[in-house]
């Protein structure tokens, strides 16, 4: 394609091609401290393209494609090109990864042990991981935790952190020196701003961790903590994994192993500070 960029995030290599220079330039800047794909061969190809040639110039609109595509994926305006790239990369992960059980969760690590935080969009996965990282935890990822069914370890996937709405200010306050992408207003998911994970998160992204705690956070409620029974945790995680079915037996073994191994806890929280205190209290009690 006309413009291209390759990068490795955790164990996954991407090649991103684009009909426009702008999204590639943004990716080059924000991902400048990341390595390239192993052996120069990307796991996945992503394409940002104009449906019709004139759409490169007239009301340019970015179609999302690649090795794996969704027929109903709506195009985005060019000024949201970075979001298009990130969505396309997520799509390759969600539909293409076979080596790992993909958990829709953010993850932070301390002393080789990881806390996984899972929930629907808006539950606060990204914000919580970012705030915990500011308190000394190692940031492993804000979107996907990669569980290796063979070892039971989780691998980091520290892509750009996708901050949304109120989460943007909270993360900026916690990480005043962080490098940020452009503020993308009025996207399909509200206001979005991407933050580059801290240097340590990138430098240690090849180090996996042993899962120690599975948290189901929920934002906007009075602080409360309750244990989640294993059967419920299992079912919720099958829904929070995009490739659980595709992995077949390996996925089942991986997920039942995880649920048996770590406590599952639901936390409701009214604000970031409460959530941090709740997670760290759970951690201390382990």
């Amino acid at each position: 394609m006309r413009h291209a960029f390759s990068v490795r995030i955790g164990p996954i290599g991407f090649r991103i091609g684009s009909d426009w220079r702008a999204p590639i330039a943004t990716l080059e800047t924000l991902y400048r401290n990341y390595p390239g794909p192993r052996d120069g061969v990307a796991d996945f190809t992503v394409r940002l393209f104009a449906r019709r040639p004139w759409r490169r110039f007239v009301r340019p609109s970015v179609e999302i494609g690649g090795d794996y595509m969704l027929p109903e994926a709506a195009p985005l305006p060019l000024r949201q090109g970075l979001l298009a790239a990130e969505m396309a990369m997520n799509l390759q992960m969600a539909l293409g990864v076979r080596r790992y059980l993909l958990l829709h969760a953010s993850a932070v690590e301390r002393d080789g042990h990881a806390v996984l935080m899972t929930g629907i969009s808006g539950a606060g996965k990204s914000t919580l991981a970012t705030l915990l990282a500011a308190r000394g935890w190692r940031f492993m990822g804000d979107e996907f935790a990669l569980l290796d069914p063979a070892t039971g370890l989780v691998h980091a996937f520290p892509r750009l952190i996708s901050l949304k709405n109120e989460g943007i200010a909270a993360a900026e306050a916690a990480w005043p020196a962080a490098r940020m992408g452009p503020l993308l207003r009025a996207t399909p998911k509200g206001d979005i701003r991407h933050m580059v994970p801290d240097a340590r998160a990138i430098a240690t992204m090849d180090t996996p961790a042993t899962p120690a705690l599975l948290v189901f956070p929920r934002y906007g409620f009075a602080a409360e903590t309750r244990p989640v029974p294993p059967a419920e945790a299992f079912v919720r995680m099958t829904q929070a994994s995009t490739n659980y079915v595709a992995l077949g037996e390996a996925g089942f073994r991986g997920l039942t192993g995880l649920i048996a191994q770590v406590p599952s806890v639901a936390i409701d929280y009214p604000d970031g500070a409460s959530a941090i205190a709740q997670v760290e209290a759970l951690w201390s009690a382990l």
Binding site: G13, P37, R38, D39, G40, V41, D43
Partner: peptide
């Protein structure tokens, strides 16, 4: 073949 290709 390269290790990355083999893994894929």
């Amino acid at each position: 073949m390269p290790a990355a290709v083999k893994a894929i």
